[in-house]
Amino acid sequence: MLTNPTHTSLVAVGDSFTEGMSDLLPDGTYRGWADLLAARMAAVTPGFRYANLAVRGKLIGQIVAEQVDVAAAMNADVVTLVGGLNDTLRPKCDMGRVRGLLEEAVERLAPSCKQLVLMRSPGRQGPVLERFRPRMEALFACVEDLARRHGALVVDLYGAPALADPRLWDVDRLHLTSEGHRRVAEAVWQTLGYTPEDPDWHVPPPASAPPGWLSRRTADARFARRHLLPWIGRRLTGRSSGDGLPSKRPELLPYEGPGT
């Protein structure tokens, strides 16, 4: 693989993972791995342009309908596509339909860019992952197959021990912390062929004393009240956390931060 290639533009397509939740900035907006990656690419390529079409809560059908053609029309050097995981977490999920939509997205995006990047999304240790693991792994098998057939790169976040560590996940247990997003940015950076800044991004943080029983139960109760119950409510009413929200960065424009 080339070292420090020249990429002049990046378009990110997807859901909350690519939008950057829960890497919160002081102004209340989210940064995330795609912004961090864009900042690093911009630092080595003057005039670098970046768009992020991601919106939290989007299913793969919505990503295809709302983001894919927009991204393809931008003819960027690099396009990242991460989608379908929200579908696998729904009580009812037609994996055949998910695979078909993901294939449609790849078939439309791959010819439009110099390099398409797909991912095996990270999975936090715990009972939620175990419940949905078969669907997730079916999705990732589809990602690997599409990458082989269309010349896309695959970033294996699912197989990275660090990104399974609960300490790198926010209190909602669905989104990575700032440190988690930093590691994802590093993983994509290296997969694209740039010189590693953190060769050990996949290694978990040093061991720490586990929280006590009372701390765990308190955290579980807080999680259920603030995150799990609202999430269930949205599922039951057919609503999404991204309803009515625009794309994070809808135009392919020169990138000037924040991202560090």
Rank of each mutant, 00 (worst) to 15 (best):
T3A: 14
N4S: 01
N4I: 06
H7W: 15
H7C: 09
T8Q: 07
S9L: 02
L10W: 10
A12M: 12
V13S: 05
S16C: 06
F17Q: 05
T18Y: 01
G20Y: 10
S22K: 05
D23E: 05
L24H: 04
D27N: 14
T29G: 09
Y30D: 02
Y30P: 04
R31M: 15
A34F: 01
L36N: 06
L36P: 01
L37A: 08
A42N: 09
A43M: 10
V44M: 03
R49N: 05
R49D: 06
Y50G: 10
V55T: 13
Q62E: 14
I63Y: 01
E66D: 15
Q67D: 15
V70D: 00
A73N: 10
N75K: 10
A76V: 06
D77H: 03
D77Y: 10
D77Q: 09
V78R: 04
N86T: 02
P91I: 08
K92R: 10
K92Y: 04
M95Q: 04
M95D: 11
L101V: 07
L101Y: 03
V106A: 02
E107K: 09
L109M: 06
P111T: 14
L116F: 10
S121V: 05
P122G: 02
P122L: 00
G123P: 00
V128G: 08
L129W: 14
R131A: 13
R131H: 13
P134Y: 14
P134C: 11
P134Q: 11
R135K: 08
A138I: 01
F140I: 04
C142R: 03
E144D: 15
A147G: 03
R148T: 12
R148N: 13
R149V: 05
R149H: 13
A152H: 00
G159Y: 11
A160C: 13
A160H: 03
D165T: 14
D165K: 13
V171R: 15
V171D: 15
R182S: 00
T191N: 09
G193V: 06
G193R: 05
Y194S: 07
T195N: 05
P196R: 01
H202T: 04
P206K: 02
S208L: 12
S208D: 13
A209I: 12
W213G: 04
A219Q: 15
D220T: 10
F223D: 10
R226M: 14
H227A: 11
L228F: 08
I232T: 02
R239H: 08
R239M: 05
S240Y: 05
L245G: 13
P246L: 09
P246V: 11
K248P: 04
R249P: 07
P250I: 04
L252C: 00
L252Q: 00
L253M: 13
L253H: 08
P254K: 07
G259V: 02
